[in-house]
Design a protein around this nucleic acid. Structure first.
Length: 579
RNA sequence: GGAUCAGUGGUGUAGCGGUUAACAUGUCUCCCUGUCACGGAGAAGAUCGAGGGUUCGAUCCCCUUCUGGUCCGCCA
């Protein structure tokens, strides 16, 4: 037997007990004939004390795996920084199980190594307790989900990883078929069609902790393969389903971080979210709402060509931003297609700032009243012909400014549903409608008539769960009527032949008594980020890829042998790997 | 595809035309019986990401390139 106890669990209650421990040498302090070793395993660290004049001690260095036998003793002076700080192990036998090279990074809670170094030596980085804690949180979220869903008669069912490529949406990762040269499997972007087929198959309640793949560019919160808690149900009405999912969210927060989520969750329509927060995933931990100043379009020269004039008010920030800092915000504005921002601040002498000289007294008074300004408030004003530029810009600004002015309290969680997204977006280039969510999304019943007259106005039975400004999940009620499904495909500009080619089996399936159904997918990675308080998705994935989609540790993707390519009937025509 | 920031001992940083390339930490050797960020003495360790240019002289300025971070496009 390697061990009788876990290091981090030892307390004063164990005083006098004989224990056998294993672990890694986290730190040693050699005082000559007295040697202290911080011995680390997954549970934590305990100090072991070796009298080197009474015991022959093998060579011991950092990160060696060692085994000790000894007695749990009370320490003269406790170390309050350690869970086990009240005890130490007086060693009677010590043995090296395995040696270790000097690690390239410091293995401690605070390491000074940069992330790319840590990623290269991920297996060492994972020894740090702060990293392990994040994976513990991730596992606890999955466990909470399984417990809740199992308890509510959901079945955990696996769906294929080698699936059919269906164009539209994200790029697929393709897998060449050896048995069928020239044909490809696609890795699933989500198990969407399969889970709907499971509903048609009469399984009624399904879930899966599903790996999904999207061949798109990465971000701090986006990986090419990621995990969703994927859920689908039959015979639940919209509100019933959302309520059931709210309780799941509540349980996750309770089980993982012991935080009480108050139900029911707030709901905001997509349109309200955009108008009020400039985002479809608003961070509602702080205010900074958007204000409508469209009335300035008439009467202010600067806004003569821009009917959309919107503002955010940052309280007590009038003296906190220099002219230079305000100018820098214009860089942000340009990203959103807005040329520049105007600003105002209310001083004791009245309105000042870039816009002040362009306003008459009546307009100034109207602004002060309309925005309810107080002295030293800062107003940032975005203006453009198009709402779709102004609102997202101010949405982005409110997020960055909230961070800059520290308007966000730590350990605060604001959870809400954003619902009723438009069913379609209109692509001006191709002059076609595209599904905002996916083509199986149910429109709002009251908007069905609009499908004939103005499809762009049709809203859908969709919902996103938004937590602290992150989209932590999204779903919809699905179309179960094949007639309606055909109308949607037609609106998307798909011919019968195209429909047959892409979704034929699914269209067929719809005709055999499809139950009303709907579902959601929660982003497990995102949830883990939120609950472990990191804004880096790589922190909550054991072996993540960097922004170029490369694993710095195992160095995939890599080239393969000519034999492998030949077998797959694949010829590389461009690139260095061609030989 | 685009924008932007950063590459200097193992690790993290400083230096920004002429330096013996500095500091911290880690590593190694010796001393130390109460340390817990142990302490003390000493040592080793860097072709300043790569290539080119400007210059009497480049870690420093310019160009190219590679690598990494962040963002935009993209992500039904």
């Amino acid at each position: 037997m390697y061990r009788t106890r876990y290091n981090g669990t030892l307390t004063l209650a164990d005083e006098g007990k004989q224990v056998k421990l294993v672990g890694w040498v986290s730190k040693k302090r050699n005082l000559g004939s007295l040697l202290f070793i911080d011995l680390r395993d997954r549970s934590g660290i305990v100090q072991v004390t070796v009298k080197t004049d009474e015991l022959t001690v093998p060579e011991i260095r950092n990160e060696f795996v060692i085994s000790v036998k000894g007695i749990v003793n009370k320490k003269e002076v406790a170390n309050p920084n350690l869970k086990t700080g009240e005890v130490e192990i007086s060693v009677t036998a010590i043995e090296v199980i395995n040696k270790a090279k000097n690690p390239p990074i410091i293995i401690a809670d605070t390491t000074d190594a940069l992330e790319d170094t840590r990623l290269k030596y991920r297996y060492l980085d994972l020894r740090r307790s702060v990293m392990q804690e994040k994976l513990v949180i991730r596992a606890k979220i999955a466990r909470a989900a399984r417990e809740y869903l199992d308890h509510n008669e959901f079945l955990e069912i696996e769906t294929p990883i080698l699936t059919k490529s269906t164009p539209g949406g994200a790029r697929d990762y393709l897998v060449p078929s050896r048995l069928h040269p020239g044909s490809f499997y696609a890795l699933p972007q989500s198990p969407q069609i399969y889970k709907q087929l499971l509903m048609i198959g009469g399984l009624e309640r399904y879930y899966q902790i599903a790996r999904c793949f999207r061949d798109e560019d990465l971000r701090a919160d986006r990986q090419p393969d990621f995990t969703q808690i994927d859920i689908e149900t039959s015979f639940l009405e919209y509100d019933e389903f959302l309520s059931m999912m709210e309780v799941l969210i509540q349980k996750m927060f309770k089980d993982v971080i012991n935080y009480e989520v108050k139900l029911p969750l707030k709901r905001l329509s997509y349109a309200e979210a955009m108008e009020t927060y400039g985002s479809d995933k608003p961070d509602t931990r702080f205010d900074l709402k958007l204000h409508n100043l469209d009335f300035l379009h008439h009467g202010v020269e600067l806004f003569a060509h821009t009917p959309v004039v919107r503002a955010i008010v940052i309280p007590e920030a009038g003296d906190k931003m220099s002219r230079k800092q305000l100018d820098e915000l214009n860089i942000e504005a340009k990203k959103f297609g807005v040329n520049s921002l105007a600003n105002l601040k209310l001083t004791s002498e009245g309105l000042a700032g870039s816009l002040a000289t362009k306003l008459n007294d009546a307009q100034k008074a109207q602004i002060i009243k309309s925005l309810n300004l107080k002295v030293n408030d800062l107003v940032l004003i975005a203006f453009n012909e198009v709402k779709d530029r102004v609102l997202p810009l101010l949405g982005a600004l409110r997020a960055t400014l909230a961070k800059r002015f520290e308007l966000i309290k730590p350990n605060q969680y604001e959870i809400l549903w954003v619902e009723k997204f438009p069913l379609f977006s209109y692509d001006k280039e191709t002059k076609r409608y595209a599904s905002e969510h996916h083509p199986f999304t149910m429109p709002l019943i009251e908007d069905l008539e609009l499908l004939k007259t103005d499809p762009s106005k049709v809203l859908s039975q969709t919902f996103d769960i938004v937590i602290n400004g992150y989209e932590a999940g999204g779903g919809s009620m699905r179309i179960y009527d094949q007639e309606l499904q055909h109308r949607i495909f037609a609106l998307l500009g798909m011919s019968e032949a195209e429909i047959r080619e892409k979704f034929g089996f699914f269209i067929d399936a719809l005709e055999y008594g499809t139950p009303p159904h709907g579902g959601i997918a929660f982003g497990l990675d995102r949830l883990a980020m939120i609950l472990s308080g990191t804004d880096n998705i790589r922190d909550v994935i054991a072996f993540p890829k960097n922004l170029s989609g490369i694993s710095l540790m195992s160095e995939e993707p890599n080239s393969v042998t000519q034999e492998q390519l030949d077998e797959l009937h694949i010829k590389i025509i461009k690139g260095e790997d061609n030989e």
